[in-house]
């Protein structure tokens, strides 16, 4: 009996030490943090990029953004921070940093409006579930009592009110969330020309500043048609502009 106990203890100790050895090995995320702290920003960038390939986390996006910022690529940093904020919309720290980088680039802080924050209260998927359920519930409450020739009671009236309310809340939220995904950032470090047509040789129709937000209106081959924060509209190369949903 005692030998059996000893063997069991030995097995447990072996398993614990093996687990400890495994946990000590650095993940790309941790490697990125270590490299960043050693001011090895290129390594940090590579490590955080590797971390994002396996699992996209807001922290990795944020850290990669800061690494880009340290490498004098603030426009790319803006995109990474925008994306981090999309993943964690209520992280005030990310928002502050995004605003700071934007201001470094000569842009407005660009704090999100309350409508955008309200729509980010739930993920888009959840809004869609709420909208669909409330829509069909509402249709059922409107149609089924008519088929049955009955009047609806207080409980169904309450449900109808809740459905309408949920639909009113969820529909604009879905619209705002999807609209947010149709935006992107100018990732060049210099001001870029916007063209009147999807061709580099087309006449210039405006200028997009580094890190500037823009809404995608259309796309054609290697160009996006965008409208920037400064109300400039035109076609920009896909190399110079990255959608937020990319």
């Amino acid at each position: 009996m005692s030998s059996l106990l000893r063997i069991s203890l030995l097995c447990i100790l072996t398993a614990v030490s093996a687990f400890a050895a495994t946990s000590e090995s650095n993940t790309p995320f941790e490697g990125g943090i270590e490299a960043y702290q050693n001011a090895e920003y290129k390594t940090a960038k590579a490590q955080f990029s590797a971390a994002l390939k396996t699992n996209e986390t807001a922290a990795a996006r944020h850290n990669l953004g800061l690494a880009h910022f340290q490498l004098n690529a603030p426009a790319e940093a803006v995109w990474q921070l925008e994306r981090a904020q999309l993943l964690e919309p209520f992280n005030a720290d990310y928002r502050d940093k995004l605003e700071a980088v934007r201001q470094e680039l000569g842009l407005f802080a660009g704090s999100p409006k309350w409508t955008v924050l309200a729509s980010a209260a739930l993920p888009t998927k959840m809004w869609i579930v709420i909208a669909t359920i409330s829509f069909w519930t509402l249709i059922a409450i409107l149609i089924l009592p008519r088929i049955n020739d009955t009047k609806i009671g207080i409980s169904l009236k309450t449900l109808r009110f809740i459905s309408i309310f949920a639909l009113i809340l969820s529909t604009p939220s879905i619209w705002l969330n999807l609209r947010l995904l149709q935006t992107g950032t100018v990732i060049t470090d210099e001001a870029t020309s916007l063209h009147a047509a999807p061709a580099s040789a087309a006449p210039q129709s405006g200028t997009a500043r580094p890190g500037e937000r823009a809404r995608i209106l259309d796309q054609y081959k290697h160009f996006y048609e965008i409208e920037t924060e400064g109300q400039a509209t035109g076609w920009i190369s896909k190399d110079a502009f990255r959608p937020l949903a990319d």
Partner: peptide
Amino acid sequence: PEELLIILDYRPEQGRHIETDLL
């Protein structure tokens, strides 16, 4: 802002999943 922009986030929590074609 300069000090703020050197501070990393050390907690890689799983954020939201971004789906583009939900509709």
